[in-house]
């Protein structure tokens, strides 16, 4: 095994990781602040992918239409998230977690059927944006430019979210809401608006992830459920509710998958599940999470 091969495998794992982080970040944010385990996050991601495809059909074939389509998709899903949070989800905050879970699971079914009714069952596809269609040769392996772009956008989102949460006034309120919702309300802050804002940001991220994934994946019914399982694994590894945990959880997932298939080629998914099982036993709150008292 030469170095360039191992490096290629490392890059492959990193690509997987950053794609997963795009989707898992929003899931983690909503859980961290609102304590809502949003099953429908994968559905938002799927709707984002379909919307991006739809926007591509409507827009004139210009050089930059993909980016515009991605923005349209992300904003569309953010709007959908806002409506769902304002009209439906907010009634469930005081309830037991089981009700919230059932509610978001119902959303999965409804959005899945809605997508099927609108876009049919055909697999759809979007081509790479022309600017990022090529590849780079690094140390003897090819790195597609689009993969490089995804590798950069993952950390960019992580840093931006971290800055927002730690350095801005809104971020301070959000962190306060995560710690003690009632106390913050008593102090006069508009907790409802903070929650809506968080849900919208999370939906936006899901929509964006769905749109950005279209150049390298097929858009099919069922992509929602497929991705949510992987996103949950990442979030569990990193620690529920820990944002950086989700980031490192993705990186670990990608590398374990990537090098795991070299060790156990016949059981590709085994290594990732094994890792999750070990973490759940040894450190049930995840690598970066805090034990819940």
């Amino acid at each position: 095994m030469d170095v360039s091969f191992l490096f290629g495998q490392f890059l492959g794992g990193l690509t997987t990781a950053m794609f997963l982080f795009l989707i898992a970040s929003g899931l983690s944010l909503v859980f961290g602040v609102m304590r809502v385990l949003n099953f429908a996050h994968g559905s938002f991601y799927m709707i984002g992918a379909y919307l991006a495809w739809q926007a591509m059909q409507w827009l004139e074939p210009t050089l930059h239409r993909f980016w515009l389509a991605a923005l349209v998709a992300a904003l569309g899903v953010a709007l959908l998230g806002a409506v769902i949070e304002r009209v439906l989800l907010r009634h469930l905050y005081g309830r037991e977690e089981l009700y919230q879970l059932l509610f978001t699971y119902a959303l999965v079914l409804i959005l899945g059927d809605a997508a099927k009714a609108i876009w049919g069952t055909q697999q759809l596809s979007v081509s790479r944006p022309p600017l990022l269609a090529g590849g780079l040769d690094i140390l003897g392996t090819t790195l597609p430019t689009y993969n490089l772009f995804i590798m950069l956008i993952g950390p960019a989102i992580a840093v931006a979210a971290w800055l927002l949460l730690t350095r801005s006034n809104a971020g301070r309120l959000v962190r306060a809401a995560a710690l003690d919702r009632e106390m913050l309300g008593a102090l006069g802050a508009n907790v409802g608006a903070i929650y809506t804002g968080m849900f919208v940001v999370s939906s936006f991220l899901a929509g964006l992830a769905g749109a950005l994934v279209t150049p390298i994946q097929s858009i099919v019914p069922g992509m929602d459920v497929e991705i949510i399982v992987e996103a949950f694994i990442v979030v569990v590894i990193g620690g529920l509710g820990s944002f950086w945990g989700t980031f490192w959880g993705s990186v670990i997932y990608g590398q374990v998958l990537s090098f795991g298939i070299l060790v156990f080629p016949s059981f590709s998914i085994f290594s990732v599940f094994a890792l999750m099982a070990v973490i759940l036993i040894v450190r049930p709150w995840g690598l970066f999470g805090r034990p819940i008292r």
Binding site: F5, G12, T16
Partner: peptide, 22 residues
């Protein structure tokens, strides 16, 4: 020389592809 077994519905094949090319 090589067998790769991704799962049905695999969302990212990249590591499988690079491993096989190796």
């Amino acid at each position: 020389v090589d067998q790769q077994w991704p799962k049905l519905g695999q969302s990212d094949f990249t590591p499988f592809i690079t491993a096989q090319m190796g």
